[in-house]
């Protein structure tokens, strides 16, 4: 029952806005959510268009850009590492905080580990050593502690707040 692999087969993805985007099976494979579509019996590579109601064309193309760049530059020498670093920096520079968070949502929905790792690291770099106020604002956290409760947390975790200035 050996199947002969069909060369140049692409997977069609339909974001919630904009046109269908074609990706190579190798890229699609890195998105767990897409992968489970492909493995479904009703999936026909030539005709099926996978709908992605939670992902915009912008988010999808950013994620594909990232995967494309990184899959082409794997397992090569130091000068490639340099240019990969540059690509990553440029990639983040173009993203405002809100866009970065949206992209995190999209990467989570598509379940693409490489992009998730990269974005989570980027968020960590952004919030590392920032004030509680900054981090709350960044994550859109509404403080549901009373003043006393928050004080209590700080007191019981005093060992973690040593040398930290109050806001």
């Amino acid at each position: 029952m050996a199947k002969t692999p069909e060369p140049k087969r692409t997977i069609s993805l339909k974001p919630c806005d904009g046109d269908v985007i074609e990706v190579s099976p190798m890229i699609a494979k890195q998105m767990q959510t897409i992968q489970s579509f492909i493995e479904d019996d009703s999936f026909i590579a030539t005709t099926t268009i996978i709908p992605l109601p939670n992902v915009t064309a912008f988010q999808l193309s950013k994620i594909i850009d990232y995967l494309n760049y990184h899959s082409n530059s794997k397992a090569v020498a130091d000068n490639v590492k340099e240019s990969t670093k540059k690509f990553d920096e440029e990639f983040l520079k173009e993203l405002e905080h809100d866009k970065l968070k949206e992209l995190l949502h999209a990467a989570n929905y598509l379940n693409v580990k490489e992009v998730l790792d990269f974005l989570c690291q980027a968020v960590a770099d952004l919030i590392q050593d920032k004030s509680v106020k900054f981090v709350r604002k960044f994550f859109g956290v509404v403080n549901d502690y009373s003043v006393e409760e928050e004080e209590d947390i700080r007191r019981t975790h005093a060992w973690a707040f040593e040398g930290v200035e109050e806001d």
Partner: peptide
């Protein structure tokens, strides 16, 4: 995912997020 982010932080700062909410 939030844990994923916290895992990239220095642990001292990760614990401090307990006051967020």
């Amino acid at each position: 995912i939030l844990l994923h982010v916290l895992n990239f932080l220095r642990t001292k700062h990760a614990v401090q997020t307990s006051v967020l909410s």
